[in-house]
């Protein structure tokens, strides 16, 4: 899917691209970590933490690379804890609050169904570092997708109440999914440099996965084509991100230059 070329990617676009991956993992990992201790069953509590831990690990790899590309002598932790919300490049979908377990797992499912083909494509990236991170993250993403699909299907099909809640979650989150496939100049530059795939191809794969599994879950795909945008380019995040960062960054901001 990735066509190799000798073109060198504009380093600005590469940094932007890597930051997006790191911020996606950071923000979603943080949301998943918020569940710790309050899951619907002990087994689920443990599984949610595993997903969060995988995502924190992915964050460390992506943001460490971003910090190197940036070349301003900052670390992955500096990027995570010392940037303002406007500098974040995560998808709006991922900063959505957990709400109930249904929303959490639907958000996870919609993202996993994108991450799996996306990371698979990145495994043959012309940028070796990107390829290496994608190979490790891809294994984790495949398991995340298996688990989130199983749960979306089970709860969609389960009881009247679980069906209603899952349909609500899908309706509420649907208009945030499209941002994953919005192609901007960074995406085009990455594709031209054979660093990342054409998002149109990922979109097609995502559609197949999502349609098939939502069918199994007896959930109706909303017919709205409206797409909320502004996360991956940082132009307009929602209010949720600021609150998340106020919590996440409190120690680094209150006691700057400390060792923890």
């Amino acid at each position: 899917m990735i066509t190799h070329s000798n073109q060198t990617a504009d380093s600005r676009h590469l940094l932007e691209f890597v930051l997006r991956q790191g911020d996606n993992a950071l923000v979603l990992g943080h949301r998943m970590s918020e569940w710790c201790g309050t899951g619907p069953a002990l087994e689920e509590d443990i599984a949610l933490a595993n997903t969060a831990l995988d995502l924190i690990g992915q964050t460390q790899m992506w943001l460490a690379y971003a910090a190197e590309l940036e070349g301003r002598d900052r670390s992955a932790n500096d990027l995570a804890f010392m940037r303002d919300a406007t500098d974040f490049r995560n998808l709006l979908l991922l900063e959505q609050p957990n709400r109930d377990f249904g929303h959490t797992m639907m958000r996870q499912f919609l993202f996993d169904a994108y991450q799996v083909p996306f990371l698979q494509a990145l495994e043959s990236s012309a940028d070796q570092r990107v390829a290496d991170i994608a190979a490790k993250s891809g294994r984790e993403a495949r398991y995340h997708l298996e688990r989130s699909s199983d749960i979306v299907i089970a709860l969609g099909d389960g009881t009247e109440e679980s069906h209603r809640r899952m349909q609500d979650a899908l309706d509420r989150l649907w208009s945030y999914a499209g941002e994953m496939f919005v192609t901007d100049e960074t995406d085009i530059a990455m594709h031209n440099a054979a660093i990342a795939p054409d998002l149109k191809l990922i979109h097609a794969q995502w559609n197949d996965t999502v349609q098939a599994r939502l069918n199994k879950a007896t959930l109706a795909v909303p017919d709205s084509t409206f797409v909320h945008k502004g996360g991956k380019n940082g132009v307009r995040h929602e209010e949720h991100l600021g609150h998340m960062l106020a919590t996440m960054q409190v120690l680094q901001r209150s006691y700057p230059n400390s060792v923890w």
Partner: peptide
Amino acid sequence: DGEWVREGMM
């Protein structure tokens, strides 16, 4: 809060 989840999955 988890009751509907446990019941739905069962």
